[in-house]
Amino acid sequence: MEPLMAIVVGLLYAAAIYMMLRRSIVKLVIGLMLLSNAANLLIFTVSGMTRGAPPLIPEGAMAPAGAVADPLPQALILTAIVIAFGVLAFAVVLIHRAYEIVKADDLDQMKETDT
């Protein structure tokens, strides 16, 4: 499973960077979205995938019996998803406003502040 996930993560990063290098601001935001998803999937993969062993402690015991899945990465990913979602909502509004003001979906038209 891990090799497959590694390939998927790599493809997501590649697609994200490719999209971010395009001139269109819409594609830029799609790239940002893919990038955060790639990072989340990477956390999920590198922290080790365990099948069919939920981290539950049997009644009366103080520690789980045997090896169980690590619950922490899911908490991390959940937090990261929420943050990425909020930031993405902001970015979408930002490009909408920028499009209204600049009247172009082209990053090359946005060089006024650089000179």
């Binding site: 971010m20 601001i25 955060s36 080790g48 970015a91 600049v102």
Partner: peptide, 28 residues
């Protein structure tokens, strides 16, 4: 708007790299 697009993009890129690094470190 123009400044913000650059600011937001690069800072989010940096956050994504940071998150990736955290993931790798946690895996280690």
């Amino acid at each position: 708007m123009e400044g913000a697009i650059k600011y937001v993009t690069l800072n989010l890129l940096s956050s994504a790299i940071f998150l990736t690094a955290i993931g790798l470190l946690y895996g280690m």
